Simulated assay, not measured.
Amino acid sequence: MSAAGRTRRARWFTTAGADPHADHQVFLFPHAGGTAPAYQTWAATLPSTMDVRTLQLPGRQERSGEKPFTDVDPLVDALLEVFEAELDGRPYLLFGHSFGALLAYRLSVAAAWNGLPAPALLGVSAWAPALEPAAELARVATMSDDELLEKVGQLGLMPEGATLDPATLASIMPALRADFLAAGSLREDGEPAPCPVAAYCGTTDPIVAPGDMAAWADHCTDFLGATQFPGGHFYLFEHTAALQHSLDRRLRRLSARI
């Protein structure tokens, strides 16, 4: 493999063009089975004060030749190493949706354990500590392809009745299963996020009730409350602008405290 190929394979965070003059770095963490391109539009629609980077985990798209992680602890360890190299001294925001929220939370904890600066804000969407038992997540990950797609469809990620061609199915299934297994491997330790937390969810999410997000009050140093949007588990794709505005407003208020 060429040096260029090795560099491309090792790239964990993608960017549409980093702005060294932006006030904040913003790190986005996609849902289970998700890819960086799903959030590429955020770089164009977030305020110019935010320098956006999106996580691309092993086992998908240009990283399809790499084995995906199935255990969250080694994943966070590997993520911390590359994440530290991304930090440049500016305050930063972590935002994750569903499995991405789990990763963003555990990364914030690992950063604090290892003496790195805490995030200025942790934004968590459609996930809260102790939502689902690990056994349920592991069961989903071992379903047949059809059963797993049906489960994902119930969350609203795929239109009802939609089908995937065999090549597409083969390309997305390993990463999707791995992410469910990694989520199910989380061992709850009650460790609080070392920063303010803003929570978000959809009012009709089938797996995360709005009241579930209140659990963050016991898992952070400063809970900023939970904001609800109309919609299900993937509400954020319909309410991107409002969600971004909320994150920007919270960052500005936190900056004013200093």
Rank of each mutant, 00 (worst) to 15 (best):
L94F: 06
S64M: 15
L116V: 01
G59P: 11
V109P: 13
Y105C: 11
D73P: 04
L107P: 08
R53F: 03
L79K: 02
W113E: 14
A134R: 13
T49L: 02
A130K: 11
L46Q: 01
A120R: 15
W127M: 03
L107F: 00
A111G: 05
G96L: 03
L55G: 11
A110H: 08
G96A: 09
G156Q: 08
P166W: 01
R63W: 01
F83M: 10
T163V: 15
F99N: 12
F99R: 09
L164W: 08
L116G: 00
P74L: 13
R90S: 14
A128P: 11
K67H: 13
V124W: 03
G115N: 06
L55H: 07
N114A: 14
L93G: 05
T54Q: 07
R60V: 10
R139Y: 01
G89C: 11
G96K: 05
E81H: 12
Q61P: 12
W113I: 10
P119W: 01
T142Q: 13
L57H: 13
P58W: 04
G156Y: 02
D51F: 00
L79P: 13
T45M: 03
L94A: 07
L103S: 02
Q154Y: 05
A101F: 00
A130Y: 09
G123M: 06
L75M: 15
G65D: 15
T70L: 09
E160P: 06
K67C: 14
A120Y: 03
Q56P: 13
A104W: 03
P133M: 03
Q56L: 15
E160W: 02
A104N: 05
F95T: 05
R139N: 13
T70R: 12
L148K: 10
P117W: 00
A112K: 08
S125L: 13
L102A: 02
E132I: 14
T41G: 12
P68F: 09
A135C: 01
E86F: 04
G65N: 09
L157A: 15
V52I: 06
T163C: 01
P74K: 01
M50I: 02
Q56A: 15
L46P: 00
L107C: 06
D51E: 09
D73Q: 14
L137P: 04
A120K: 11
L107I: 05
T142N: 10
M143S: 12
E81T: 15
D51P: 10
Y39D: 11
A162H: 05
G156H: 04
L155K: 01
F69L: 09
S108T: 06
Y105G: 01
R106E: 10
D77Q: 12
G153Y: 03
D71Q: 14
N114I: 02
A78D: 15
A128E: 09
E160L: 10
Y39A: 05
A118R: 09
E150I: 11
W42K: 00
Y105N: 09
Y92I: 01
Q56H: 08
